[in-house]
Amino acid sequence: MMTNLFSVFDPSSCIPIPLNWLSTFMVFLLIPSPLWLIPSRYSSIWTSILLYLHKEFKTLLGPKSKGSSLIFISLFSLILFNNFMGLFPYIFTSTSHILMTLSLALPLWMSFIIYGWLNNTTHMLAHLVPQGTPPVLMPFMVCIETISNIIRPGTLAVRLAANMIAGHLLMTLLGNTGPSLKLSLITILIVTQILLLILESAVAIIQSYVFAILSTLYSSEVN
């Protein structure tokens, strides 16, 4: 029995739920959202922050960066969101753990050092002795510069973790004293906790920016 050739265009579905016309609306999933959605204030602010960071990092990296500023922008975003997530109750602050911060700092530092010594060996050797150093002090300056280069990932990791731990620890210690305080002092405690929360929000932004900026400076030194 022959079927109608145009029956292939009949509405049909392989499941009992009538979803025949769903494909008409699924096209919106393929259209980029900026073409049909008005950007929110959050997305506009975040876009302006990313553009500012791109200009800042590109200035430090120089004209030969070739998009490497995106790596440090991603690093800044990762640390910033983790810092802010740690401000919410019952959420673990991953950036307060030395394992997390060292996992971010050590691979970056190792890649910079390996790239610098393999591709710019003369520049890396010259960087160990600052310009104008007397010949007598050159061996000491080489030792000092070598040690300062080796401890860089540690200083990056400890700086971020220590700042996150300090603020959260202070807020926890003050919060634990609440049940034993009088009603008149609880108001002062709440105001103090709000001020500390604002301070920690600023620290979360500053520390992520400092981590990204120092990583950018370490990268610019090997070129």
Score class of each variant (00 low, 15 high):
95 T>I: 06
64 K>M: 06
5 L>A: 14
64 K>W: 05
84 F>W: 07
124 M>F: 01
156 L>I: 02
153 P>A: 00
118 L>N: 11
169 L>G: 03
89 P>A: 04
207 Q>R: 06
121 T>P: 02
163 N>C: 08
194 I>H: 07
35 L>G: 01
203 V>Q: 07
69 S>L: 05
125 L>I: 10
108 L>Y: 03
152 R>I: 04
168 H>Q: 14
23 S>G: 08
188 I>Y: 12
28 F>M: 13
100 M>S: 06
132 G>D: 04
61 L>T: 02
22 L>M: 09
143 C>A: 12
145 E>D: 10
201 S>L: 12
90 Y>F: 14
138 M>Q: 15
94 S>H: 03
150 I>K: 02
147 I>R: 04
205 I>Q: 02
1 M>I: 10
170 L>R: 09
96 S>L: 05
158 V>G: 00
26 M>P: 03
15 I>K: 14
31 I>V: 15
65 S>M: 10
143 C>Q: 07
110 M>I: 12
42 Y>D: 08
207 Q>E: 13
119 N>Q: 08
200 E>K: 09
180 S>Y: 11
127 H>N: 09
95 T>A: 03
137 L>K: 08
209 Y>F: 14
210 V>T: 06
61 L>E: 01
52 Y>L: 10
98 I>F: 15
42 Y>L: 09
147 I>E: 02
124 M>Q: 13
170 L>I: 15
14 C>L: 10
205 I>D: 00
118 L>S: 10
34 P>C: 05
24 T>E: 09
20 N>Q: 15
204 A>K: 00
78 L>D: 04
37 L>T: 12
160 L>W: 00
185 L>E: 10
173 L>A: 14
211 F>Y: 01
81 F>T: 09
168 H>W: 05
62 G>E: 02
111 S>C: 05
141 M>I: 01
112 F>C: 07
186 I>P: 00
133 T>I: 05
121 T>V: 07
27 V>I: 13
21 W>P: 01
170 L>P: 01
163 N>Q: 09
163 N>G: 09
100 M>L: 08
